[in-house]
């Protein structure tokens, strides 16, 4: 009877302990399951959306090129070739490439440092990049047209732009042509950026910067023989 009682008492404890052990094991296994974070899914879905949008754009591009080919074929069949088409295309490409001087209303920024301080190239890059992000379609720094291979690099005394040096202790003038409807909001954004740059500096080395909208901003062309247009190391892909 006593043995029965003991088995009864300890048997219950043993069963509970076994259940507890199984539950613990299961829990450890569950926590080891690699869980994907929701951030990963959102990022992946954003990538899918972005890819789909770009593919749609590329399909439109192909359709437009196809139309161009068809039109040229028709003109060829009629014996009626419009060279104007090539000229227009060349003008458009020259504007895009920065080989044509352009004008419109835009934003003019004067920037320099107070006292004897020299301006940092990173400040110029920050402003130029912000203008790019704000949708500027043409930008110049000290009348040097900014193109894809334009460098903005500081040496000890100068900042080099398109291979030309400008003293770091003098003012820099950045001009940008930007959608007229967005100029007011662009100025607010640039003022905020100016404040954040100024907050980083101490009172003796302050960035002095003025931002203004102007009705007529002219951005000069870059000469075709400019160092940044060198293509001597580039070969066409089908050149084998």
């Amino acid at each position: 009877m006593r043995i029965k009682n003991l088995i009864g008492k300890y048997g219950v404890v043993t069963i509970i302990a076994i259940i507890l052990g199984i539950a613990l094991a299961l829990q450890i296994k569950t926590t080891n399951v690699s869980a994907y974070e929701s951030r990963d899914i959102i990022e992946l879905q954003n990538n899918v959306r972005s890819y789909a949008e770009k593919n749609a754009e590329l399909n439109e591009r192909n359709a437009s090129l196809y139309e161009e080919i068809e039109k040229l074929r028709e003109d060829q069949a009629k014996g009626d070739i419009y060279y104007e088409d090539i000229l227009q295309e060349k003008e458009k490409m020259a504007i895009f490439a920065g080989l044509t001087a352009v004008q419109n209303s835009g934003i003019v920024i004067n920037m320099g440092m107070t006292g004897q301080s020299m301006i940092s190239d990173s400040y110029l890059r920050l402003i130029v990049n912000e203008l790019n992000t704000l949708g500027a379609q043409a930008i110049s720094i000290n009348d040097q047209r900014k193109v894809a291979t334009t460098e903005i690099r500081a040496t000890s005394e100068n900042i080099i732009i398109n291979g030309v040096g400008y003293p770091r202790n003098e003012d820099f003038v950045i001009k940008a042509i930007i959608n007229p409807d967005q100029q007011a909001s662009a100025i607010i954004t640039l003022e905020t950026l100016k404040k954040s740059i100024q907050d980083r500096e101490d009172a003796d080395h302050q960035l002095d910067m003025s931002i203004a909208a102007e009705d007529k901003v002219i951005i000069p062309a870059l000469s075709e023989d400019s160092i940044v247009y060198k293509t001597d190391l580039l070969r066409p892909v089908d050149d084998d």
Binding site: K54, L58, R61, K92, I95, V102, N104, Q137
Partner: peptide, 26 residues
Amino acid sequence: LIIKAYETPGTIEKDIEFLNPVTESI
């Protein structure tokens, strides 16, 4: 090394929408 062309030349018109060529000499 091969570097591909700009992938959306179809958007160039938009990219230069506000750029008017300067006709007079600067």
